[in-house]
Write a protein that binds this DNA or RNA. Structure first.
Lengths: 170, 170
DNA sequence: ACAATCATGTAAGCAGTTACATGATTTT
DNA sequence: AAAATCATGTAACTGCTTACATGATTGT
């Protein structure tokens, strides 16, 4: 696959396709506000990325008219839509398990004493429930439903594999 | 956090802690055999990583006696166990949602025509079921239970959010 | 006036990637 | 004899990271 999009590139293109013309700054903010640390939305990631997409002619930039400040507004091109669709429908990557920091740790968690383990799982469960509430309350968050469902699955998982079960009742 | 372990470093240390002294080559093989593309297990990743862990004195290397071939066998040190425990019990990272290539795509999947969408979801569901069988059948895979449960959740997720439901019956 | 936010980038560094390279040993 | 596997690395590259830097505009 030549010039296959990274996941960040794909996600950025998808946001532009969904919301229309956007500035790099707004994109950075949107990704930074994501509940996942995976999407840092740092300028050091976004600005070079937009320059890349522009060079590959997957987006076009023009001076922003709506905002008072000078800014470059990017829109997706036809080539961009094509590349986006290829990325979205990439079964090889979509079917992959990806990376789940909790899943990875659960595999090896028996290596730490039971007391620490229980406290750890309780705290993770607490934070997950908290995150679930935060996401459910946030009207702006587009991916609300999916995120909530994912978090509910993690909670079910924690219930099944330990958390309070492993720490107190056995 | 100074010198905080990366997830690959943590996972490598955990494998050594769990299985005892191992060579870089064996580690690379173990990670390469993982069902997730995230763990490539490429030598370009493992060998420099082991050199790093050795420099930081989290592992010690000695010539392998058991194997016929000359090889360096690495064991975890006391400092290594301490760092491993810190990594394992890192709630900030464990509570993060991480990266799920399917979740990311589902958020934007409405951007592609319904026909492609349905085919895509069916294929992902098929591969997930396949992967589930493969993992369940593999006696050697240590993380079998966790992986299977995770995959079952993904399947439930796919049932809920489309797959066959969205493609045929509506 | 001062702080916050908008907006755009650069610089150095790091942990990965793919591809290449070498040579010994074991299996067929 | 040839192929596969064991075993260890290096080289070039890429996409991110953190930190820094600049300046305009807006809100208090």
């Amino acid at each position: 696959m030549l010039g296959m999009l990274t996941d960040l590139e794909g996600a950025v293109l998808a946001v532009i396709a969904r919301d229309g013309a956007t500035t790099s700054y707004k994109l950075a903010r949107e990704f930074a506000s994501s509940p996942s640390q995976f999407w840092s939305g740092s300028s050091g990631a976004i600005y070079p990325l937009m320059a890349r997409l522009r060079r590959r002619e997957l987006v076009v930039g023009k001076p922003d008219a709506t905002g008072r400040r000078k800014a470059t507004s990017f829109s997706i091109t036809i080539q961009g839509r094509r590349e986006l669709e290829t990325w979205l429908l990439d079964v090889d990557r979509a079917a992959d398990m990806g990376f789940d920091p909790l899943r990875t740790r659960l595999i090896f968690l028996h290596l730490v004493p039971a007391a620490e383990r229980a406290g750890f799982l309780d705290e993770v469960a607490r934070r997950t429930a908290e995150l679930s509430l935060r996401i459910a309350a946030d009207e702006d968050l587009k991916a609300r439903e999916h995120s909530v469902s994912w978090l509910n699955m993690r909670l079910a998982w924690l219930r099944k594999f330990g958390a309070s079960a492993g720490s107190r009742s056995g």
